[in-house]
Write a protein that binds this DNA or RNA. Structure first.
Lengths: 298, 298
DNA sequence: ATGATCCGTTCAGATTTCTGAACATAGGTC
DNA sequence: GACCTATGTTCAGAAATCTGAACGGATCAT
């Protein structure tokens, strides 16, 4: 790579402010620096980014392409900076967070005392809710949400990718066929989480796409932990996110089945969202780090 | 921002190679440069990233946090570089792409001759298919796919966000109630695209979450253009991506209804995917630019 | 213990980048 | 058309960064 990354924000500013002088003013640096930076970037890349003379300025098509990438780079850098800024201050104050029920019980609860011990100055206001996405608007600082996410103004970080597994109890195991056929799978499903209860759940069997009906003839509940209890108690086969049946698979109360059938669904992905690309308050920052940590192993 | 972005890849290399000397070797620069860069970065950020003495090296918790961001920055930079590299060469050769039927007809077709005129050396091999995601593995260079995407090894770029609209024909309009009620909406839907044909389609009415049944009592087809024709011909109300009914809304053959009811669904998002973060061949690059251009207005 | 070895840091000279002032050029004004 | 103004470029001195060699400390084998 023959160009300097530090020239990228300068280039982006020139494009955005539509001028070297304007960009220089915005960045608080001499225009000569900006001019040189653009020239250096062009030389390094080996192509012209901006056609310019003393009066006019036009971004070339290559410049447009590079600008799209520049935006992403600047975005990441800004975010990194926001995250690290004020890292020296001791986090304190009230922190409102929203987390889904199953997540709070299965993953978070056991680490809460550790969080309190490490950051005693933070008063945690924990909302157990399935509607984190709505609360983030103005009621909570951070929300953990389940399922795929629309693009939005908030920053989102995937905590757990949420691979889905087919599981059953050891007692039920003998009733399954050796070779699972697409048509026979759902026959064994008595109950599943509401979010997968679709008529056409996209799946992938040994790489080939297909569909499974988890709507008709299947009971639904909006809590994976209820599904888990039911399956452990013998309620046939069901679908659970890997992070909610890890322990059960280890201690043998659940067994994985239908392994070749993978889900084409981001429905159980766990994501944390929070506002502002500009400034992450210390208490939000440490809570995000806390979430990353406790989710690292699952 | 008090730190240099150019120090970020150096820091990342030190973390990855677990040593300043190793990183220096990998980056092809003197270890003194690497050492100074890390120190400078730490000073700029105002905190210690790596605890180090002459024999041991340990990334601090702040360092871990920063490393996560560093990875993203490096990724974007690498991608930008790959995209710009070899930008001088004239793109040529065979280019296999997969695009969905509706996209090819509605958005792409009219611009194809322009593409050919601009890049006469590229032999385009155009596959109209709904299974782009499967072909990208080893049969095509670029694929445009519809719907939300799992994380994968491929690079994905959103082309069109794919907002969904409720539309109907002017002739049907008088048969709608003034105030749309959640329960009454689906009564008017005779046909919709298969991908929205779920029992519980998540929607948002004036910000509040809810669900609509587009499965029962609704016919399904896997082509939005068929839905459009049907609705224009009087088949009640249906759901169409904004980019496939722009013209019809303008010329009055379709009208938008139920505006307060927004979809909580990324189901019609158009994404382009392609392999390799390392090197984008010139012909792939110009095709990606072509796609961005033709999707910019929709 | 002791020396060999490996690693990160420091240092001083070489190189690059930054900067403010001077310069050049295009467009508008009277 | 001469002048004015706003804009990008150039330049030379100042500041910073880079670099290879020397240095200092930690571990390991003997």
């Amino acid at each position: 790579m023959k160009w300097k990354i530090d020239d990228v924000p300068i280039f982006a500013a020139v494009v955005e402010k539509n001028g070297i002088t304007a960009a220089a003013e915005h960045l608080g640096m001499p225009k000569s620096t900006v001019s040189t930076a653009i020239t250096r970037l062009e030389t390094g890349l080996g192509l012209r980014l901006i056609d310019r003379n003393s009066r006019n300025l036009r971004v070339t098509s290559e410049g447009e392409t590079f600008y799209r990438h520049a935006q992403r780079i600047v975005e990441q850098v800004t975010e990194a900076n926001a995250m690290m800024a004020g890292h020296t201050a001791v986090p304190s104050g009230r922190l409102s967070v929203a987390v889904p029920p199953a997540f709070s019980q299965e993953i978070m609860a056991r680490h809460l005392s550790g969080f309190r011990a490490r950051w005693p100055e933070i008063e945690l206001d924990l909302n157990i809710t399935t509607h984190g996405l709505e609360l983030i608007r103005d009621q909570v600082d951070v929300a953990v949400v389940v399922g795929p996410l629309e693009d939005s103004d908030y920053i989102a970080r995937t905590l757990v990718s949420g691979r889905l597994l087919w599981v059953t109890s050891p007692a039920y195991l003998p009733r399954l066929d050796a070779e699972p056929q697409l048509e026979n799978l759902s026959r064994h499903v008595q109950l599943c989480e509401k979010r997968y209860g679709l008529a056409r759940v996209p799946v992938r069997i040994d790489g080939r796409a297909g569909h499974i009906d988890l709507l008709h003839g299947v009971s639904h509940v909006n809590d994976p932990l209820v599904v888990r209890r039911a399956v452990v108690a013998g309620a046939g086969v069901s679908v659970l996110p890997a992070h909610y049946c890890r322990e059960q698979l280890r201690d043998g109360s659940l067994v994985e089945v239908f392994q070749p059938v993978e889900f084409d669904l981001a429905a159980s992905k766990l994501t944390v969202i929070y506002p502002s690309r500009r400034l992450v308050s210390p208490r939000v920052r440490v809570f995000l780090e806390f979430l990353s940590e406790i989710c690292a192993g699952v």
